[in-house]
């Protein structure tokens, strides 16, 4: 599903180059649960953003489901984000002042899906994460764990082939974190492909595979 070869990415700060991804080769197959670990600043988020088509690498090749992402126009990247990928953030990133249901339904809007169908699909997704009883709540009326479950429903609503999560439990206490992890386990068991950044070695143990990053390289 994911094929990466010799991927490089640098940031430029004050005219000097700061290499962040320094030649990564990576293959992830459909149905895998891969944990990405490594010290702070090792480039985990940068790699995830590239996988999630939110950012582009400078050099090297990235293929998603066989399609070259590296040279794709921005409109195609938007399509991939909307159809093939579900991104889950550490800080939930729900849109304020909009209900849980509206947040979950929003990705479908950009696919041109009619309102009735949007609501029915979003309702199913909320049910899947056991948040249907909070459908009309706004983000600030939900706990962190609840917000993250809504965000997971939003990532699931388009039935993407790939779920990626950057420290999804990083902002949660251990009880809420456990609940969210339980959900990810279930999703994996249902056959979803899952790539997750985590600092928690216990989570790493549950994954099919752990990829250790250090200074922008896989070790």
């Amino acid at each position: 599903m994911i094929q990466m070869q010799a991927l490089h990415k640098s940031y430029w700060r004050g005219g000097s180059e700061l290499p962040v991804i320094r030649g990564i080769d990576l293959n992830i197959s459909a149905g895998e649960f891969v944990a990405i670990m490594g010290p702070s600043g090792s480039g985990k988020s940068t790699l995830m953003n590239i996988i999630g088509c939110l950012d582009l690498a400078d050099r090297g090749e990235y293929r998603l489901n066989g399609e070259r992402v590296s040279g794709a126009p921005s409109s195609r990247l938007a399509e991939l984000r909307g159809q093939a990928i579900g991104f889950i953030f550490q800080s939930f990133n729900l849109i304020a002042n909009r209900s849980a249901l509206e947040n979950v339904a929003l990705p479908l809007l950009y696919q041109g899906i009619a309102r009735d169908e949007r609501i029915s699909l979003a309702t199913q997704a909320l049910q899947r994460v056991a948040m249907l009883d909070r459908a009309s709540h706004q983000p600030n009326q939900l706990s962190g764990g609840q917000q993250q479950r809504v965000a997971i429903a939003r990532a699931l609503v388009n039935r993407p082939s790939l779920l990626i999560a950057d420290e999804p439990t990083g902002a949660l206490d251990s009880r809420n974190g456990d609940q969210v992890m339980q959900l990810f386990n279930e999703l994996h068991n249902e056959g979803h492909t899952l790539v997750m950044v985590t600092h928690d070695p216990l989570i790493g143990e549950r994954a099919d595979r752990v990829i250790m990053l250090h200074d922008g390289m896989v070790i």
């Binding site: 939110l54 409109s75 984000r81």
Partner: peptide, 16 residues
Amino acid sequence: IREIGVRMAIGANRRH
């Protein structure tokens, strides 16, 4: 701007 980022992350393109 953050909302714009979120909308892009869930499938909005530049024209949207």
